[in-house]
Amino acid sequence: MSNILALIEVSSNGDLRDSTSSLLAAAARIGSPVAVVVTTPGAGSALVERLGNLGAAQVFLAEIDQGGTLLVAPQVDALAAAVSTLAPGAILTVNSVEGRDVAARLGVRIGAGLVIDAVNLRSEGLTIVATHSVFGGAYTVESTVQGGPMIVTVREGVIEGAADAAVPVVTTVSLTSDASNSAVIDEVIDVVVASTRPGLRGATRVVSGGRGLGSQEKFSLVDQLADALGAAVGASRAAVDAGFVAQACQVGQTGVTVSPQLYVALGISGAIQHRAGMQTAKTIVAINKDADAPIFDIADFGIVGDVFTVVPQLIAAIESRGKK
């Protein structure tokens, strides 16, 4: 089995990001997973056992002092070093902002082809085939790389299951990145998640609100229904632009793509760009005053009505069932 490098993302305080398990599971589908991690000197050994439990057969620790100060260059250098010693069959990163930057720069450096935003991976003989879900799930596309090395960015949280636990073989190298062609990180403002609500990406239930909610105060109706259902909160771009809710909540083509069991759209017309981010939901519910709103074309259950009368009644009905 060929080595599959997986660039592990580490938070600013040195913890493994949540994406680790799914990325190692993706690597295990096509070969022997090698976790590649950038750490400050000496800090990496604390991560080895956990990486093994998550399925890393090998751990490649790149000790670089500049990990917290140079933007992405240390991660690119770490992978480039691992590529030259481990001759991998493919290189995986998370399809995050950082993961795509690393894939992009490494791809040019080693002459690799890039496969972006894969939702699944499999081997067919010597070929690695990636599956993508494009235009909001309207198409399923299979792709590969020919004629050179292959780098794949894997969509966060979609590959389920876990790789078998292993006791990893550890390689440690120490590197210095060239600071002259890298941006500098002045400050890391890590988002503090104050909410107890589930995050939008990967949520199994999502309640989203649109311009129809009317104001920031009245948008709290969306929060109330989300809490009654144990759902994450989403929004249309019009609701974000109007300042009802933070940009991180935007669902759609230029926002987050979600694929939950249940998606509830409140006061959202269902523009094509919004649908691109939610139309693969298992069940779609829509409440809208306008009987001709396009959201009804894809809703499993549609209510032509006012969100401010229907939703409170729905919340009361959910709560009274909970009491029984």
Partner: peptide, 21 residues
């Protein structure tokens, strides 16, 4: 010698249909 990304296959998913309204 540079790798190139190639599409092997593209399939259109059946369009979603409306349910109860």
């Amino acid at each position: 010698g540079v790798g190139r990304s190639v599409v092997l296959q593209a399939t259109k998913r059946p369009a979603r249909t409306a349910g109860t309204k």
